[in-house]
Amino acid sequence: MTAASAAESSAGPARPASTAETAEALRRSVARQFRRSLHIRTLDTGSCAACEQEIRLLAAPHYDLHRLGFFFTPAPRHADLLMVTGPMIRAFDIAARKTYAAMPGPKLVVATGACALGGVYSSDAFTHGGIGETLPVDVWIPGCPPSPLALLQGLLVAVDRLAEKVRELTFTQEGDHR
């Protein structure tokens, strides 16, 4: 602990960390920056708008996401997090890349809903069938549509305020459900 803090306070770490360690430390420091205030821009890449309905409900009194320090913003220039819905239609490629490029760094991308995760549509002439190959995704939120509670959990996972839960789940019964 003392060695680590001493290494942090000096000009550089005593021994070079591995790339994975550095990446994880960087990811955690970015999440820590966003812990108390995060501005969200939503991006619809051809979704059916069910995800948008659920995202809209986050601002309703029952969920009230502002109490957690999350805010929606109309401009990607002001956004820290891009919430992408839909299967990423090819006609939207340029707009999606420009939106991502317009955001100031550090920035996060959350794939929202089964379409964005590549579940509903397969890749064809009109759609990529998922946003993974167009944008660098940080958090994946499944669901069709994901409920506002699931979206809240996803946002809290993105800023490191909740631990990821699904990694340990096995989706089997027989007593050991997780």
């Binding site: 994946w140 509670l149 959990q153 909740l162 990821e164 839960k165 789940l169």
Partner: peptide, 16 residues
């Protein structure tokens, strides 16, 4: 399953 907290930091974590 009754699980709704399904956010994953890696796409592979969702494949069981």
């Amino acid at each position: 399953s009754g699980e709704f907290e399904l956010a994953a930091t890696d796409r592979g974590h969702l494949v069981k």
